[in-house]
Design a binder for these strands. Structure first.
Lengths: 206, 206
DNA sequence: AATTAAAAAAATGTATACAAATATTACATA
DNA sequence: TATGTAATATTTGTATACATTTTTTTAATT
């Protein structure tokens, strides 16, 4: 049951709940999404639920009234876009990143070597987030954000299985950015994402 | 009044109507969008109207209950994304485009030199569309599509004022693709979009 | 047993009513 | 005149009812 209180609208609350349930696997890929069921479950009417479902559809997490189950092709396509946008972002980072953010990047690498699984996952996300924000381009950030909810379902796997070289690659990217070598940062980021993708697909037996 | 007939749902019909009205300037940037007004106008209830408004919000055509009025920065950001994605698409086109599509590209250039204003506008869109589709990446195509509704508001201006060299640039891109020179096609596409952007911004006095 | 048609059930689309939140107006006071 | 506040009106958010469409079940026929 949602809070009736002075919180966000029910449509937004239910959006967040559904999103979480999808991302943490509670609603696995392929699950049928039925408005009335969800509404009853969350204790609100169908009206706000519809809205949250539409939002999730737009985000790509729900397709055809079912929780998305991205195909190998889908992932390749999303990673191709990421390579272009994050590669460019890495270039921007090399040109513009301030000392403070550079230090944060370095910290992410450190945590990647010494942290717990949860810490590492968080640091990985942050590493990419810092770089993407360096693009200083909200349109780009938004596109990556939207894809990242789907990609999240995979990064989990990658870190859980502790992909070899992942942190080394981050370190190299960090070094290139620190050395203000944009062209190299771009190239390394693309290679990094390509490796990520292949590792995911391999693990998932694609 | 919408057709009650065996057509698409009212929410979808009203979406398309609203979208058209925004794109053709009938609902100019900054207009307040009020659910009840629109509903009365189109002769349906608020329920389907809400849905279409949400869709337009996702598409970026409505922001804060008002028709979007993109800032210079917004345009720069969108064009930056376009440069990356369409540049890559041009590369793909150079590698993979079939003879038939090559001929279509060439036709677009021809029409660009000889057609009426409407024909030229259409040919311009088609030129880019053929190249984007060469990426063979629905995720990428979708991103560009979503931005293109906003960008459309500008391409109109550019063609109306008949930007110098626009068709020459298309021709050069076409030649690079035909020559299977992906790197050059990429570079030319980026330059082309940059020029488009600057021309738009200049015209609009940004 | 497989295939199809009819019936039933379930789910979605839309209209309407009312509640909650926002914006607007009118008026009082400094 | 400017500013704050109460009253009003407008607009959005949500629940509910019903219509339409889609899916599933059942039964009949080959």
């Amino acid at each position: 049951m949602l809070e009736n209180n002075h919180s966000r609208p029910a449509s937004h609350q239910s959006y967040e709940i559904l999103r979480d349930r999808i991302l943490n696997g509670e609603l696995p890929g392929g699950s049928k999404i039925v408005e009335e069921k969800i509404a009853a479950d969350l204790g609100v009417s169908r009206t706000p639920i519809r809205e949250s479902i539409r939002k999730l559809e737009h985000e790509g997490l729900i397709v055809n009234k079912r929780v998305v189950k991205p195909s190998e092709k889908d992932l390749r396509n999303m990673f191709q876009v990421r390579m272009l946008l994050e590669g460019y972002s890495a270039q921007c980072a090399a040109s513009y990143l301030k000392e403070h953010d550079l230090q944060s990047l370095h910290q992410c690498v450190e945590i990647g070597r010494t942290g717990t699984v949860e810490e590492i996952m968080e640091a990985n996300e942050r590493f990419h987030e810092i770089i993407v924000r360096a693009s200083n381009n909200p349109v780009m950030i938004d596109i990556i954000d939207r894809m990242s909810s789907i990609i999240f379902l995979f990064r989990k796997t990658v870190v859980f299985y502790n992909r070899p070289h992942l942190i080394d690659e981050h370190e190299q990217i960090y070094q290139a950015i620190k050395a203000r070598n944009g062209e190299k940062a771009d190239r390394l980021m693309k290679t990094h994402l390509q490796a990520d993708l292949e590792f995911c697909l391999h693990l998932l037996g694609c």
